[in-house]
Each structure stands twice: as C-alpha cells, then as structure tokens.
Computed example of a mutant assay.
Amino acid sequence: MEYDFLRNTITDTVFARFSMDHEALGFWLSEELADNSELYVEICQQIERLQNGQGNEWRLVGKALSLELDSEQARIFANDIEDNDDQELDESMSFYDGESEAFCGLEDFYEVIVNWRRFLDEN
C-alpha cells in the first residue's frame, strides 16, 4: 500500500492519495478524519483496546464512508456499498469497488493514521 499526503497551497487544504485498491482510505482520511484530533484519539484508543483483546470490533459511521475495525484489520467502505451487493452482473463483469472499499491490517492502519496526524501537525 503506497500513499502520499499532500497540501494544496492554493486552497490550503490537505488530502491523502493512496495506491489502487486503497483509494477509499485516502478519501476517508481527507474527508472523514481530516484534522479532527478528538476522533483521532478515539480511534487510537479503540485500536489499542482491540489489540489488547478487549472487544471484537468497532464501527464508526461517517458522512459518506464508514470505518470498521476488528483485532486484525481495518475496513473503510462507502455507506451505500451494500446496495451494490443486491445487483447481479454477468459472470464476466464485476464492480470495481477500490474507490468505495479498502482493507488493510490493523497495524498498517494505525501507522497510516499516525503518519497522517504527524503530517497535519507539521503543516
């Protein structure tokens, strides 16, 4: 998983750009987590809780994307992604959901949000 954190100097906004199949994670960081330090702390606490075996999973529903954590992985997904599950496609076709759903290991996710917070603090 490759990513960059960037600042648009014209609009003075920050955003995250992720490699293919992880684009949803970049959008979630940029739009849902953004610079919300209280939410950052809450997510870090939940990750620590899950890593210590205190609970099975945790979910945060956002405006457009939601975050789901369990003891092994993080899942970012569009709130309307379940709507696509009901649609049937020809066998040779499939939905590309890289922009609306992404998975990564819990430790990798933690590293990403720590780096995101560090980027915001430095800028």
Rank of each mutant, 00 (worst) to 15 (best):
Q87R: 15
D90W: 01
Q87F: 15
V112G: 00
S30W: 04
D108K: 03
E38Y: 09
D21P: 00
D83A: 10
C104V: 06
F95A: 13
N36K: 12
L69D: 01
S100I: 13
D85H: 12
E101A: 14
N115D: 13
D12L: 09
E23R: 11
I76A: 07
V114N: 10
D80H: 08
T13D: 13
N79P: 09
R59S: 07
F27C: 09
E38F: 02
E68R: 04
F77V: 10
G53I: 13
E32F: 03
T11M: 13
F119V: 04
D86T: 15
F5V: 06
V61K: 14
A74R: 00
N79Q: 08
Q45D: 12
R17K: 15
L120R: 04
D21S: 12
A102F: 02
L33V: 12
L69V: 04
S19W: 06
E68S: 06
R118L: 11
M20P: 03
F5H: 03
I10D: 11
I43H: 02
D85N: 14
A34P: 03
D86N: 14
L60V: 06
R75V: 15
Q54V: 14
V41C: 01
F109H: 01
N8P: 03
N8A: 08
I10P: 02
V114L: 14
E2L: 10
L65D: 07
C104I: 08
A24V: 08
